[in-house]
Amino acid sequence: MNRLRKKLDHLISIKEKALVAYLVAGDPDLDSTLDLMHLFVKSGVDIIEVGVPFTDPIAEGPIIQKAHDRALKNNISLPNIIKLVEDFRKVDDSTPIILMGYLNTFSFHKELIDKSDQHGVDAVLVVDIPGELSISSYGISNPNIDSISLISPTTSQERIEKIAKNGSGFIYYVTLRGVTGSSNLDVEEINSNIKKIRSYSDIPTLAGFGIKSNEDARLLSEYSDGIIVGSSIVDMITKQSESRNFDRIGEYLRGLKNAIL
């Protein structure tokens, strides 16, 4: 059993909700990313989602897009990111790590991704492949690496069933129509869709996109097995990229974790 499944099973057994935090590898630089990952864990984060920068990140809002651009200026690519995960594992061998990115970069490094469990990666989330497919459809199949599928408010009943049955690790429920960092959460819709997903699958369902405040976090955690927070963290990283003083991010994450307890 990989770290991700172990962690989620454990949280469910103690009736806690998972806090997943996202950052873009190499923004503002790889050393800061490593420091931030450790800070995340210290501040109550259960699972880390590492963004793999891409030139054309079509699912991202302006905050995360700009982080991708900055990382690309630092020449960050998958080989550096795998090295980053290895460095992180020297200190922390239990926090699950998910790589999140776009098919073109992943399929360009198929062999690297296929063996990435040996370097400490637990799951891969490819934003631009249809949910009923997984990375194995693209020649990357390793039972130790979960392929996280997305379900959105517009996913049809028929496809919810297919995706839910096909997913591994957890189902990522996209809470709104829009790119990362948008607003306007529709709680009733979220609740009813997550119920549908659970009727087809036993794997946990986590909710992400549009979570900014402790209140958002608390509300969504009532209906899901955990929450995923990205843009608001990346925004804080951006604002502190000169000083490299990320203490406020620690406070912010502790607030979120307390809100979902």
């Binding site: 997305l150 517009t154 049809s156």
Partner: peptide, 8 residues
């Protein structure tokens, strides 16, 4: 090859 929201 699109985000899930666009599949429908």
């Amino acid at each position: 090859f699109v985000p899930e929201t666009l599949m429908y």
